[in-house]
């Protein structure tokens, strides 16, 4: 199990700093491991971004399945995934509500001038995050590497609450982006195709 390979597998193409942040490693550690993985033909670097190769994806699938079976965690991850799926449509609704605001029944881009509306959406995000925290705790108990998602989701929400409006749905470190990596990770971990 290579944390960096698996992180990259769930992120797609990304620059070094984002990979290091997601994997909770230093830039130097991450780069060193990426170079080893590249030598083995498991990752590639294009236009400044790293991404997994087909061989890298296949190898990660194999290692992730082995890790899951060794930990005897399939049942627990499967159950947590079921709970995640009930939260997923709500998260997507809230991201849309953050980006588009109904005005006279017409969705218009949210210019964030209506602070009362933003406060309502942010508060709903907070409620959802509390329920997501329970799911993340179950996942981390089954496989410790999932604990990083809790930290990243919480950090994104904190940044948004501190006024960084793009940190809910509109940046590469946003709650939405981390959430989708978690979704991808669950699919990969359980060996399920998307759709």
């Amino acid at each position: 199990m290579s944390e960096v390979l698996h992180t990259l597998r769930c992120m797609g193409f990304a620059e070094l700093s984002r990979i290091a942040d997601a994997a909770a490693l230093t830039g130097a550690e991450t780069e060193s491991e990426l170079i080893d993985l590249a030598v083995d033909g498991l990752v590639t670097r294009q236009m400044g971004a790293w991404g997994p190769t087909d061989a890298g994806r296949a190898e990660d699938t194999r290692r992730t399945a082995a890790e899951l079976d060794a930990a005897g965690a399939r049942g627990a991850v499967d159950a947590a995934y079921g709970k995640f799926l009930t939260l997923n449509p709500e998260l997507l609704d809230l991201c849309s509500a953050w980006q588009l605001r109904p005005v006279d029944g017409v969705p218009v881009p949210n210019d964030h001038h209506d602070t009362a509306y933003d406060a309502r959406v942010l508060s709903l995000f907070g409620e959802l995050d509390q329920r997501a925290e329970v799911v993340c705790a179950h996942l981390a108990a089954a496989l410790p590497r999932f604990a990083r998602y809790r930290e990243r989701l919480g950090a994104a929400l904190d940044r948004a609450r501190a006024g960084a409006l793009e940190e809910l749905a509109d940046s590469l470190t946003s709650y939405h982006v981390v959430w989708f990596q978690l979704h991808e990770d669950l699919l990969v971990t359980l060996g399920r195709p998307r759709g």
């Binding site: 399945a65 799926l85 009930t86 849309s96 509500a97 109904p102 699919l187 399920r192 759709g195």
Partner: peptide
């Protein structure tokens, strides 16, 4: 946002994923 009137079950993505579980592991790769 009420712009259209399309309806369905709440947990559709989940339904698709459950069906997908029958697929060969790694098929998505």
């Amino acid at each position: 946002l009420g712009a259209a009137d399309v309806r369905g079950a709440a947990d559709v993505r989940g339904a698709a994923d459950v069906r997908g579980a029958a697929d060969v592991r790694g098929a998505a790769d």
